[in-house]
Each structure stands twice: as C-alpha cells, then as structure tokens.
Computed example of a mutant assay.
Amino acid sequence: MAKGMGRRPKVDLDSDVEDATVLILEWLGEQGVSAMIRVDAERMCDGQPAWTFAASGGPLEGEMRADGASSAECMGRALFGLREAGLAVPF
C-alpha cells in the first residue's frame, strides 16, 4: 500500500487480536514505545470509529495513530502500522 493514498488496509477481525492487546501494549513499553488504546463514547454515539490506538517514542519515528469501529479493527490497523514502521510485533 502506498503511503498517503488514503486507503485503509484490510484487517483480520477473526485474529483474536483483542485477546493479545494488553500483551502487545506491554511489549511496546519494553521497546521504549509509549502506547494506549481508548474508546470515545461521543464518537461512538455519532456513528464514527470510536476506538483509537496511539503510540510514540522508542524506535518509532514520530507518532502513529490507528482508528477503528471496534477494538479488533483498531488493533488490526495498529499492528499493520507498527509493522510498516519497522517494528516486528510478536503477534
């Protein structure tokens, strides 16, 4: 996928990424990356993607963000972005 093309990668919603989210966050912290996942009730009520993953620091060049309609979609996009940034996330 070309950067900046505005297309979103397809994510595997059946990958059980939700079960591994805390482990992924812990692993990122061990790599020096500050990361979080959150849900925004206001965006949920407006029908917008309510889940956000954000990360910065460590080996990341700048900040990264991924949004999704569910926690699985959000983390799937986050994993794609982290791998695209060069982090070999063990999931």
Results as ranks from 00 to 15, higher is better:
31 Q>T: 04
53 F>I: 09
27 W>S: 03
46 D>E: 15
36 M>A: 12
32 G>L: 11
8 R>D: 03
27 W>K: 04
19 D>H: 03
78 A>D: 02
37 I>R: 07
50 A>R: 01
57 G>P: 14
34 S>G: 04
57 G>N: 14
60 L>F: 00
1 M>E: 04
81 G>W: 11
43 R>Y: 02
41 A>D: 15
34 S>F: 07
17 V>C: 01
15 S>I: 01
41 A>R: 02
34 S>A: 03
13 L>R: 07
28 L>K: 09
74 C>A: 01
54 A>Y: 09
32 G>R: 13
37 I>V: 15
9 P>V: 10
87 L>S: 09
80 F>M: 04
77 R>S: 01
23 L>P: 10
69 A>N: 12
91 F>T: 12
41 A>W: 06
66 A>G: 02
75 M>E: 00
70 S>Y: 05
82 L>K: 11
71 S>N: 06
91 F>C: 11
12 D>A: 05
79 L>W: 00
88 A>F: 08
70 S>C: 08
33 V>A: 04
12 D>Y: 06
79 L>A: 03
73 E>K: 01
34 S>Y: 00
64 M>K: 12
69 A>P: 04
51 W>C: 10
22 V>P: 06
74 C>N: 00
17 V>Y: 00
80 F>D: 11
46 D>P: 03
84 E>K: 13
20 A>E: 15
7 R>G: 08
65 R>M: 10
79 L>N: 07
47 G>I: 12
71 S>Q: 14
56 S>W: 06
36 M>E: 14
87 L>Y: 05
43 R>S: 12
87 L>D: 13
69 A>W: 03
64 M>F: 09
74 C>F: 05
49 P>G: 04
7 R>T: 04
55 A>K: 13
8 R>S: 05
72 A>K: 03
9 P>L: 09
46 D>F: 06
64 M>Y: 02
2 A>V: 05
83 R>S: 01
47 G>T: 12
50 A>T: 08
85 A>Y: 02
84 E>W: 02
5 M>K: 05
56 S>H: 14
69 A>Q: 12
18 E>G: 00
56 S>C: 13
6 G>M: 12
39 V>K: 14
27 W>V: 07
31 Q>V: 06
74 C>R: 08
